[in-house]
Design a protein around this nucleic acid. Structure first.
Length: 215
DNA sequence: CACCAGGCAAGTA
DNA sequence: TACTTGCATGGT
Protein backbone atom coordinates (compact mmCIF):
# COMPACT_ATOMS: atom_id res chain seq x y z
CA UNK A 1 0.00 0.00 0.00
CA UNK A 2 1.47 3.27 -1.19
CA UNK A 3 2.01 6.29 1.01
CA UNK A 4 -0.93 8.63 1.34
CA UNK A 5 0.90 11.40 -0.45
CA UNK A 6 1.31 9.20 -3.52
CA UNK A 7 -2.29 8.01 -3.38
CA UNK A 8 -3.56 11.57 -3.32
CA UNK A 9 -1.37 12.51 -6.26
CA UNK A 10 -2.49 9.45 -8.17
CA UNK A 11 -6.12 10.28 -7.45
CA UNK A 12 -5.65 13.83 -8.65
CA UNK A 13 -3.89 12.67 -11.81
CA UNK A 14 -6.65 10.23 -12.62
CA UNK A 15 -9.41 12.76 -12.18
CA UNK A 16 -7.55 15.50 -14.01
CA UNK A 17 -6.70 13.23 -16.95
CA UNK A 18 -10.31 12.13 -17.26
CA UNK A 19 -12.15 15.42 -16.74
CA UNK A 20 -9.52 18.08 -17.50
CA UNK A 21 -9.28 21.45 -15.77
CA UNK A 22 -12.53 22.66 -14.24
CA UNK A 23 -11.91 26.40 -13.84
CA UNK A 24 -14.55 26.19 -11.25
CA UNK A 25 -16.75 28.53 -9.29
CA UNK A 26 -17.65 31.24 -11.70
CA UNK A 27 -18.66 34.60 -10.33
CA UNK A 28 -17.83 37.99 -11.74
CA UNK A 29 -16.34 39.29 -8.50
CA UNK A 30 -14.87 37.85 -5.29
CA UNK A 31 -17.89 39.17 -3.41
CA UNK A 32 -20.27 37.23 -5.65
CA UNK A 33 -18.26 34.09 -5.02
CA UNK A 34 -18.47 34.61 -1.25
CA UNK A 35 -22.21 35.25 -1.39
CA UNK A 36 -22.70 32.18 -3.57
CA UNK A 37 -20.88 30.09 -0.97
CA UNK A 38 -23.59 30.89 1.58
CA UNK A 39 -26.53 30.62 -0.80
CA UNK A 40 -25.54 27.20 -2.09
CA UNK A 41 -25.59 25.52 1.32
CA UNK A 42 -27.41 22.23 0.77
CA UNK A 43 -28.85 23.69 -2.44
CA UNK A 44 -28.52 23.00 -6.16
CA UNK A 45 -26.13 25.47 -7.79
CA UNK A 46 -28.51 26.09 -10.72
CA UNK A 47 -30.99 27.71 -8.33
CA UNK A 48 -28.21 29.84 -6.88
CA UNK A 49 -27.15 31.02 -10.33
CA UNK A 50 -30.72 32.06 -11.08
CA UNK A 51 -31.05 34.02 -7.86
CA UNK A 52 -27.70 35.72 -8.50
CA UNK A 53 -28.92 36.81 -11.94
CA UNK A 54 -32.08 38.16 -10.39
CA UNK A 55 -30.07 40.12 -7.81
CA UNK A 56 -27.83 41.49 -10.53
CA UNK A 57 -30.80 42.60 -12.63
CA UNK A 58 -32.22 44.39 -9.61
CA UNK A 59 -28.91 46.09 -8.86
CA UNK A 60 -28.75 44.38 -5.47
CA UNK A 61 -25.55 42.41 -5.93
CA UNK A 62 -23.64 44.70 -3.62
CA UNK A 63 -22.77 44.45 0.10
CA UNK A 64 -24.36 47.76 1.12
CA UNK A 65 -27.49 47.25 -0.95
CA UNK A 66 -28.07 43.78 0.52
CA UNK A 67 -27.36 44.91 4.06
CA UNK A 68 -29.87 47.76 3.75
CA UNK A 69 -32.61 45.47 2.49
CA UNK A 70 -35.05 44.30 5.20
CA UNK A 71 -34.63 40.62 6.07
CA UNK A 72 -38.08 39.65 4.80
CA UNK A 73 -37.37 41.30 1.43
CA UNK A 74 -34.13 39.37 1.21
CA UNK A 75 -35.97 36.18 2.11
CA UNK A 76 -38.41 36.75 -0.77
CA UNK A 77 -35.53 37.03 -3.22
CA UNK A 78 -34.03 33.83 -1.80
CA UNK A 79 -37.25 31.82 -2.04
CA UNK A 80 -36.15 29.56 -4.93
CA UNK A 81 -33.18 28.41 -2.85
CA UNK A 82 -35.11 26.83 -0.02
CA UNK A 83 -34.21 27.72 3.60
CA UNK A 84 -34.85 31.31 2.57
CA UNK A 85 -35.43 32.79 6.04
CA UNK A 86 -32.33 31.07 7.34
CA UNK A 87 -30.21 32.22 4.41
CA UNK A 88 -31.41 35.82 4.65
CA UNK A 89 -30.24 35.88 8.27
CA UNK A 90 -26.95 34.17 7.44
CA UNK A 91 -26.17 36.57 4.61
CA UNK A 92 -26.92 39.50 6.91
CA UNK A 93 -24.60 38.06 9.55
CA UNK A 94 -21.82 37.73 7.04
CA UNK A 95 -22.40 41.21 5.61
CA UNK A 96 -22.32 42.80 9.06
CA UNK A 97 -19.05 41.02 9.85
CA UNK A 98 -17.68 41.96 6.42
CA UNK A 99 -18.54 45.65 6.88
CA UNK A 100 -17.29 45.85 10.46
CA UNK A 101 -14.02 44.00 10.12
CA UNK A 102 -13.06 44.76 6.53
CA UNK A 103 -15.10 47.78 5.44
CA UNK A 104 -16.82 45.49 2.91
CA UNK A 105 -13.54 45.10 1.03
CA UNK A 106 -12.62 41.64 -0.24
CA UNK A 107 -9.14 42.99 -0.91
CA UNK A 108 -8.74 43.96 2.75
CA UNK A 109 -10.08 40.59 3.81
CA UNK A 110 -7.62 38.68 1.62
CA UNK A 111 -4.70 40.46 3.30
CA UNK A 112 -5.51 38.86 6.65
CA UNK A 113 -3.42 35.73 7.34
CA UNK A 114 -5.30 32.46 6.84
CA UNK A 115 -4.72 31.24 10.42
CA UNK A 116 -6.54 34.28 11.80
CA UNK A 117 -9.11 34.72 9.07
CA UNK A 118 -10.53 31.18 9.16
CA UNK A 119 -11.51 31.28 12.85
CA UNK A 120 -12.95 34.76 12.30
CA UNK A 121 -15.16 33.47 9.47
CA UNK A 122 -16.21 30.48 11.55
CA UNK A 123 -17.36 32.82 14.30
CA UNK A 124 -20.03 34.22 11.98
CA UNK A 125 -23.33 32.46 12.68
CA UNK A 126 -24.25 30.62 9.51
CA UNK A 127 -20.71 30.21 8.23
CA UNK A 128 -19.50 26.69 8.94
CA UNK A 129 -16.31 24.96 7.85
CA UNK A 130 -17.28 24.28 4.24
CA UNK A 131 -18.59 27.77 3.61
CA UNK A 132 -15.55 29.35 5.29
CA UNK A 133 -13.11 27.26 3.24
CA UNK A 134 -15.04 27.96 0.02
CA UNK A 135 -14.79 31.70 0.65
CA UNK A 136 -11.10 31.42 1.55
CA UNK A 137 -10.18 29.27 -1.44
CA UNK A 138 -12.41 30.51 -4.25
CA UNK A 139 -13.15 34.13 -3.33
CA UNK A 140 -9.92 35.10 -1.56
CA UNK A 141 -7.49 32.68 -3.23
CA UNK A 142 -6.03 31.49 0.06
CA UNK A 143 -4.87 27.83 0.30
CA UNK A 144 -7.62 26.28 2.44
CA UNK A 145 -8.85 22.88 1.24
CA UNK A 146 -12.64 22.48 0.93
CA UNK A 147 -14.40 19.28 2.03
CA UNK A 148 -18.00 18.91 0.86
CA UNK A 149 -20.57 16.12 0.63
CA UNK A 150 -19.14 14.95 -2.73
CA UNK A 151 -15.58 14.86 -1.43
CA UNK A 152 -16.76 13.01 1.65
CA UNK A 153 -18.59 10.41 -0.43
CA UNK A 154 -15.70 9.78 -2.84
CA UNK A 155 -13.15 9.53 -0.02
CA UNK A 156 -15.23 6.99 1.85
CA UNK A 157 -16.23 4.92 -1.15
CA UNK A 158 -12.61 4.58 -2.18
CA UNK A 159 -11.28 3.91 1.30
CA UNK A 160 -9.21 7.05 1.66
CA UNK A 161 -11.10 8.08 4.80
CA UNK A 162 -12.10 6.00 7.77
CA UNK A 163 -15.60 6.18 9.18
CA UNK A 164 -16.07 8.87 11.76
CA UNK A 165 -13.35 11.24 10.53
CA UNK A 166 -14.30 14.84 11.17
CA UNK A 167 -14.32 17.69 8.68
CA UNK A 168 -11.10 19.03 10.16
CA UNK A 169 -9.40 15.65 9.95
CA UNK A 170 -10.32 15.24 6.30
CA UNK A 171 -9.15 18.76 5.52
CA UNK A 172 -5.84 18.04 7.24
CA UNK A 173 -5.51 14.86 5.23
CA UNK A 174 -5.11 17.01 2.13
CA UNK A 175 -3.31 20.00 3.61
CA UNK A 176 -0.71 17.85 5.40
CA UNK A 177 0.13 15.93 2.24
CA UNK A 178 -0.14 18.49 -0.54
CA UNK A 179 1.73 21.75 -1.11
CA UNK A 180 -0.35 24.85 -0.22
CA UNK A 181 -1.13 25.56 -3.87
CA UNK A 182 -4.36 27.50 -4.47
CA UNK A 183 -4.88 26.28 -8.04
CA UNK A 184 -4.27 22.68 -7.00
CA UNK A 185 -6.77 22.93 -4.13
CA UNK A 186 -9.36 24.57 -6.36
CA UNK A 187 -9.02 22.04 -9.15
CA UNK A 188 -8.88 19.05 -6.83
CA UNK A 189 -12.06 20.01 -5.02
CA UNK A 190 -13.84 20.84 -8.28
CA UNK A 191 -12.86 17.41 -9.60
CA UNK A 192 -14.38 15.74 -6.54
CA UNK A 193 -17.63 17.55 -7.26
CA UNK A 194 -17.47 16.56 -10.94
CA UNK A 195 -16.88 12.86 -10.32
CA UNK A 196 -19.39 12.92 -7.48
CA UNK A 197 -22.12 14.39 -9.65
CA UNK A 198 -21.49 12.28 -12.73
CA UNK A 199 -20.48 8.90 -11.36
CA UNK A 200 -20.07 8.54 -7.62
CA UNK A 201 -23.78 8.87 -6.88
CA UNK A 202 -25.39 8.42 -3.43
CA UNK A 203 -27.18 5.31 -4.62
CA UNK A 204 -24.19 3.07 -5.44
CA UNK A 205 -23.20 1.80 -8.87
CA UNK A 206 -21.03 4.10 -10.91
CA UNK A 207 -20.64 2.64 -14.41
CA UNK A 208 -17.85 4.25 -16.40
CA UNK A 209 -16.36 5.97 -13.39
CA UNK A 210 -12.65 6.75 -13.86
CA UNK A 211 -12.13 5.55 -10.29
CA UNK A 212 -13.84 2.18 -10.78
CA UNK A 213 -11.96 -0.38 -8.74
CA UNK A 214 -9.59 2.26 -7.40
CA UNK A 215 -8.77 2.11 -3.70
C1' DC B 1 -43.71 9.63 -6.20
C1' DA B 2 -39.05 9.41 -3.89
C1' DC B 3 -34.87 11.36 -3.52
C1' DC B 4 -31.31 14.73 -4.00
C1' DA B 5 -28.90 19.41 -3.68
C1' DG B 6 -21.12 22.72 -2.90
C1' DG B 7 -24.63 22.87 5.39
C1' DC B 8 -25.32 24.74 9.77
C1' DA B 9 -26.84 25.43 14.48
C1' DA B 10 -29.68 24.20 18.28
C1' DG B 11 -31.42 20.68 21.04
C1' DT B 12 -30.99 16.19 23.38
C1' DA B 13 -28.83 12.51 26.33
C1' DT C 1 -18.87 14.34 22.92
C1' DA C 2 -21.99 12.39 19.45
C1' DC C 3 -26.34 11.90 17.36
C1' DT C 4 -30.84 14.05 15.80
C1' DT C 5 -33.78 17.57 13.91
C1' DG C 6 -35.43 21.93 11.58
C1' DC C 7 -34.86 24.61 7.80
C1' DA C 8 -37.82 24.42 2.40
C1' DT C 9 -37.78 25.03 -2.72
C1' DG C 10 -36.88 23.08 -7.24
C1' DG C 11 -34.80 19.46 -10.34
C1' DT C 12 -34.51 14.69 -11.90
Amino acid sequence: MAHLKDRLQDLYQRLFSFFGPQGWWPGDTPFEVALGAILTQNTNWLNVARVMEDLKAKRLLDPAALLNLPAHELAKLFKPLGYYNLKAARVKNFLAFFAQRFSSSMQAMSEEPLEKLRPALLSVKGVGPETADSILLYALHLPSFVIDAYTFRVLHRHNLAMDGMSYEELRSLFMDHLPPDVSLYQEFHALFVKVGKEFCRPQPRCPGCPLEGWG
